[in-house]
Amino acid sequence: MDYQQKNMSVLVTGATGFIAQHIVNDLLKQGYKVIGTVRSEDKGKKLKSQFGNNDLLEMEVVPDIAQPRAFDDIFKKYSSEIKVVLHTASPFHFRATDYEKELLIPAIQGTKGLLQSIMEFGSQTVEHVVITSSIAAIKDTYRFLEKDLVYTEDNWNPISWSESQLNPQDAYRGSKNFAEKAAWDFLQHNKGLIKLNLTTINPALIFGPQLFAENITGTLNTSAEVINSFLQSMPDRDITNIRGDFVDVRDVSKAHLLAFQNEEAIGKRLGLSAGQFNGQDLAEILNRRFQQLRGVIPPCTSEGAYKIQPYAKFDNSKTKEILGFEFITLEKSLCDTAAQILKKEY
């Protein structure tokens, strides 16, 4: 599918995000014109500057994606240009206290509002929407430790609305689950009114370096903070509860582009996982590769995730076949992330 055409733009919502910055970078490298949404003019100016004031990058302010008609003006302004929309904007943190207001409603309304704006003002030009969902919309958290259970891209997390009110973690899982379902339901409900291809990207916990080292701060985005907090932990920290599936941010970005470039991705959920890890895997790699961390972080005392702590596995072989590239390994992703953080700190 040839999308590299004159007068054609890719809209990236939430352009200042961890994943989105890598996506914008990859799009610019491939010669696309990019329209990025940001929450404030200052954020837009900073991001534009970080990309060297690239002429192919435009910034548009959307203060609150959950507000009605939040994206209307963008599609009115660029109605003849936007053919692809990459929707990455959605809250991801575990600090919420009002779960509906801070996580659930912004995720759901942001997705539905975007699609509504496309239907009203971009239905003649927008051809493909790619939505950043999550493995949280696939896996049933309460069955996570069942070692013989295998998930695929076809599974859905059965979390209910009431269950999503229990804690910040379940609120986030619910937000991704309900927002993604809203997108598929919108497409089905408006099948005769809108001709639109949809693909969702469902990544596991995302490791990897920040695109710009200056974005390294004391506390990083939620997924990268797993590594950051590990680097700042004490040697006696209990790391037995750290476990999950992972994928590198650079692979997540690559998958977003392939999602609209590869016809085989139309109508698919692309599950991104490079494998499983646990705290002992992190400890083993970091102690072996970074001498200055020995005695500072928890030591490696046993074997890693595949050998002593098996849990529900994610079979994403369908996704791997569609994407056609090898995922970055845990060691490379972890070391690239740690090296960037340590260079800033030490």
Rank of each mutant, 00 (worst) to 15 (best):
K320D: 00
E263A: 13
N278F: 05
F327W: 10
I328M: 08
F325N: 02
E331V: 11
R289W: 02
V249E: 05
D281M: 00
I297C: 07
K307I: 07
V296Y: 13
F325L: 06
Y311C: 12
I341M: 12
G304T: 01
F277K: 00
C300S: 14
D281E: 04
F277D: 02
A274C: 06
L258W: 07
K344N: 12
D245I: 08
P298W: 11
I297A: 01
A274R: 00
Q291F: 14
D251C: 06
K332A: 15
G324I: 05
D336K: 07
N287Q: 06
A259D: 10
L272D: 00
G275S: 01
Q291T: 15
H256E: 05
Q261H: 10
F260M: 03
P310M: 13
G304A: 06
Q340C: 12
D315E: 05
N262M: 15
L282R: 00
E263N: 13
L286W: 03
E284P: 05
Y311A: 11
A305I: 02
Q340N: 05
I242E: 08
L286E: 03
A283I: 01
E326S: 11
K268R: 15
K320Q: 05
Y306E: 14
G275C: 04
K320C: 03
D248W: 04
I341Y: 09
G275T: 00
K318Q: 12
D315M: 10
R269Y: 07
V247E: 03
K307A: 10
K332T: 12
E303T: 10
V296C: 07
K318T: 09
I308L: 12
E331P: 10
K343C: 14
